[in-house]
């Protein structure tokens, strides 16, 4: 179901998408990052939007392969801002966005490599003074410098927000899946190199990075002085504990009790 938003901005909507290098969770090969690709997909489905892709990173063969994954979605160029490997890319990206002056910036919620803390869009928003929203599910319409969007909430719900442009929005797995990357356009597309000064991220040097350890499972702690109680608690089947059972009631009384619970929990709308 494509969410085609129509924009009434003269000259079309200018959308920038921040893309990163992803890594396949099983094979560890570089690829287009899943959430970033969804952001590109969303930008492409916006009617009359001119889409530009920005990546800050190194020019490397492996990275180029991954970036061509985005080109294969039907994009002509990716702007590659050259940065050294330990660079903090926020200043460079902020500069690029300030110059490009897009109305809407889309990105994934978090990267698939390195720190992947998901803070970058927030830092950009703070640096540029633009509003930011998360979990973008669809852009409904853009008019008069305001965008009406749907935000994905947990449990499949949606919230409608109106946000002043220019703005940054992050996209995660609730957005429509990205289209396939086609080989031909991926070969034909161009990477446009831009030079920018690199700010070295000094904190990184003090960190110790290792392959993720399995997290210990939390044990059920039973606080009781008597061994018998502890044993019973450890061996017992899960029971609700304090559950209320209504016997010998008319269906109406039972329904009333259920209705009360449903209302208390706020699931009736």
């Amino acid at each position: 179901m494509p969410h085609n938003a129509t924009s009434s901005t003269p000259g079309g909507l200018n959308v920038a998408v921040l893309v990163s290098i992803g890594r396949h969770p099983l094979t560890a090969r570089t690829r287009r990052a899943d959430q970033d690709a969804r952001a590109v997909e969303m930008a492409l489905t916006l009617d009359g939007a001119s889409v530009s892709l920005i990546h800050a990173g190194q020019q490397e063969r492996e990275h180029e392969e991954a970036l061509r994954g985005y080109l294969g979605m039907g994009i002509d160029t990716v702007n590659l801002i050259q940065q050294c490997p330990q660079a903090d890319v926020v200043p460079a990206l902020a500069d690029a966005l300030r110059q490009g002056a897009p109305q809407l910036v889309l990105s994934g919620a978090r990267a698939e490599t390195n720190e992947a803390s998901g803070v970058l869009p927030y830092l950009l928003a703070e640096a540029l003074g633009w509003p930011i929203i998360t979990n973008l599910a669809a852009v409904e319409k853009v008019e008069q410098g305001m965008a009406t969007v749907l935000q994905a909430l947990p449990r499949g719900k949606r919230r409608r927000l109106r946000i002043r442009l220019p703005a940054i929005a992050t996209v995660d797995s609730s957005a429509p899946a990205a289209r396939q990357s086609a080989f031909g356009p991926a070969r034909r597309g161009a990477l446009e190199h831009l030079d920018a000064a690199s700010d070295i991220d000094e904190a990184l040097a003090a960190w110790q990075v290792q392959p993720a350890r399995k997290r210990p499972k939390r044990l059920k702690i039973v606080k009781s002085s008597s061994a018998r109680d502890r044993f019973k608690a450890a061996a017992a089947k899960a029971d609700g504990g304090g559950g209320q059972t209504l016997t010998d009631v008319t269906p109406e009384q039972g329904a009333e009790a259920i209705f009360k619970l449903l209302k208390e929990e706020g699931v009736l709308r």
């Binding site: 490599t113 992947a116 904190a203 392959p211």
Partner: peptide, 14 residues
Amino acid sequence: TARGAAGRDDIIRA
């Protein structure tokens, strides 16, 4: 200790 790189790495830091 924090998870990084989409759950693949552990980052140990202050």
